[in-house]
Amino acid sequence: MRIKVLSSGFLTTIQDLGRKGFQQFGVSPSGAMDVRAYKLGNMLVGNNIEASSFEITLMGPRLLFEGDGIIALTGADLSAKINGNPVALNKCVQVYSGDLLVFGVPKTGARAYLAVAGGIDTDIVMGSSSTDLKAKIGGNGGKALQKNDVIKVHEHNMTYSSRFIREFISKKFSFNYHKAVEFHKVRVLLGPQDDYFTEKGIETFLSSTYTLTNKSDRMGLRLEGDVIEHRDSADIISDAISFGAIQIPAHGMPIVMMADRQTTGGYPKIGNVISVDLPVMAQLTAGSKMKFELVTLEEAHLLIKEEDKTYKLLAEHLSEQAKRIVKKSTCYEVTVRNKNYYVEVEEIL
C-alpha cells in the first residue's frame, strides 16, 4: 500500500521510538512525543512495537490510500473521517484503495498517531526512522509531510479483525487529556539541579498552576505562570538533558524538554516529569492548564512496571480478539439528546 499526501496539515512527521545511543555525539533522540499512544497504535494493527507511524499535530493532513490496508488512530481526537464517516480512536480500521482520510477540528489532545499495518517504509538513519527536523534526518527525508509526497507502507500478512479493546484501553490507561478538567496533573521527581532554587522557588513550582504557551514544539513545551525563584545563578556548566527535564532559565518559567531536545544544555533543571506522565505533557495544547505534583522514585518505578504489565495484558487480549473475523465494519456518529455516540455496525462472516 502507498499513502498519497493531498495536503500536509500543520505538522505531520514519521516517528518511531527514537534514535538510541547517539546522544553522546550530540544527536537528539527524537521519536514519538506520546510513546503510549504510539505503542498502542502499533499493537492495534499487529505491528512490531517499534514500527514507524505518523505523528499528526493539531491540524491533520488529507491522505489518500492507494491499496487496501489496516490502520489505527490513537492519541489526540482530531476529528478524523474516512470518506466522510467518523473514525473511532483506539480501534483498528480496514481501509480500501481510494479511501480518503481527512482531519477536522482538534477536539482533545495535541498529537494523534496513525499506525499502519506493516509499518511505514522509510529512511532509517542511525537506527531509527524518526524525523529530526533540526538535523534534517530520518522519516520522509528529514522533513515533515508535504503535499504530493507518496509514502510507502511495508508488505504485511495481517487480516483485519475487529478488536473490542476500547473499553479495555480506557479502563487500563489514563487518557486524561480527553477529559475536561480544571487542570492536568503531571507527576515529577526533583533534580538534578533542584539545589539551584530557593525553598520558595520549589514551593512555587509544586503549587502553582501553569499554562502551556503556543511557543511550544517537539523540542520543548513552554509554560507560563508564577516565577520560580533561583538561589542566585540561572546558568550551569552544561550537562545532559533527559526526556521530560524541566529547565528554568533566568525568566523563571518552566520549559519541559521533549523528544527533539538538545542533548546538553546550560539551564538548571528543577525536576523531571516521570515516564508514565510524559504522554500527558505531550498532549497539552496551548492554553491547557497543569500542575506539577511531587512523587517518589519508588512510585515512579512502580508505575512503569504497572504500565508494562498492562501492555502484556493488552497483547493477550488482542490475540484473543484477533480470532473474531469481521467482513466489514462501519462507524457512525449519532447524536442523541445533544450527546455524541459512536455506533459500529459489523458484518460478521
Binding site: L189, L190, G191, P192, Q193, D239, A240, S242, F243, G244, A245, K269, N272, V273, I274, S275, L297, A300, H301, I304
Partner: peptide, 10 residues
C-alpha cells in the same frame, strides 16, 4: 549521584 528523571542517573 543525581536524579535526572526515573530512568537516568547523573
Amino acid at each position: 549521584l543525581l536524579l535526572s528523571g526515573d530512568s537516568s542517573v547523573i
